[in-house]
Amino acid sequence: MTRDLTVNYYRIEKAISYMTANFKQQPDLDEVAEKINLSPFHFQRIFLDWVGLTPKKFLQYLTLDYLKNSIHQTQNVIEAANLAGLSSQSRVYDLFVNIEGVSPQQFKSAGVGLEIFYGYHASPFGICFIAITDRGICDLHFIDENSDRKEYEVFSKKWSFAQLNHRPDITQSYIQKIFKPGENAQEKLNLLVQGTDFQVKVWEALVNIPFGVVRSYQQVAAQLGYANGIRSVASAAGKNPILYLIPCHRIISKDGTVGDFQYGKVRKRTMIAWEMASLAV
């Protein structure tokens, strides 16, 4: 089951990469299925299982015009927060996330002996590495099969003062809470992060972007009172240590392009569209 989930994600990612590159030609089911070496029937069944929509319907959430309009819609939601609509609907899927931020030096002096459990698990977006402490989740990253697996090496250096234990039996329950929106949304997830005050402020702003909603770097910078600090916001987003839960994938360029993402633009597009499509199911 776990292997099937992982294999299917990479099939879907490959299909989405092809669809986004050729969306103006509106490739049909047979054409996309052929590109990933599946029958049209098998491809559509996998896609429906993954997101609940056909590939054709899903494609609309990947277009530049749609994402650009979504940014403007987000601004309207912010200005009229009491109106029913996308914001209230998306909150049904939101997890309650709280960030506890400390500087690396503060934590290094106070965190000696901290016990951290970590594991590798399948997710809707491929294999992920997750690490938790009794104070909260402290890492979540995705892993590509065709790249070097350096997540543990990087993580262990950052948390060298802690005791690290491979316990996927413990971390699996967190994966279920994170990637099943709506089923466990009432439970609060605490995040333990190392970062500067500014980085933590940016990460907190990202957490407040609702499920299925996108905002521009400019909007986030203005919200934080740094209207001219777009690059600083982008840099802080790029250093996000807990992907998905700190949803840096929900921040895009104002022209509708998705911008950079440390684990690939295709995965970022996929995550954005998956959330938007989930609201439409």
Rank of each mutant, 00 (worst) to 15 (best):
T2P: 06
R3S: 06
T6I: 15
T6C: 05
A15P: 09
I16Y: 02
M19T: 15
P27M: 10
L29I: 14
D30N: 13
A33C: 04
E34R: 13
I36S: 06
I36M: 04
P40Y: 04
H42M: 05
R45D: 09
D49G: 08
W50V: 12
T54D: 12
K56T: 14
F58I: 08
L62P: 03
L62Q: 04
D65T: 13
Y66I: 06
I71R: 02
Q73E: 10
A80W: 04
L83F: 01
S87L: 05
S90R: 02
S90C: 05
R91G: 03
L95M: 13
V97Y: 00
I99W: 06
E100K: 15
G101A: 15
S103R: 00
S109P: 00
V112R: 01
L114P: 03
E115C: 11
E115A: 14
H121M: 09
G126I: 08
F129H: 11
D134W: 06
D134T: 15
F142N: 08
E145Y: 09
S147E: 13
K150R: 02
N165V: 14
D169E: 05
Y174A: 11
Q176R: 12
I178K: 11
I178S: 08
Q186E: 09
K188N: 07
L191V: 09
L191I: 02
L192A: 05
L192M: 11
V193Y: 05
G195P: 04
G195W: 07
Q199N: 05
A205G: 13
L206R: 01
V207K: 14
I209K: 02
F211Q: 01
G212S: 02
S216Y: 11
Y217W: 12
Q218S: 14
Q219I: 13
Q219S: 12
A222C: 13
G229D: 12
R231V: 03
R231P: 01
S232K: 14
A234S: 09
G238Q: 01
I246W: 03
C248F: 06
C248Y: 07
R250S: 00
I251L: 10
F261D: 04
F261R: 08
Q262C: 04
G264C: 02
T270W: 00
M271Q: 01
L279F: 00
A280V: 07
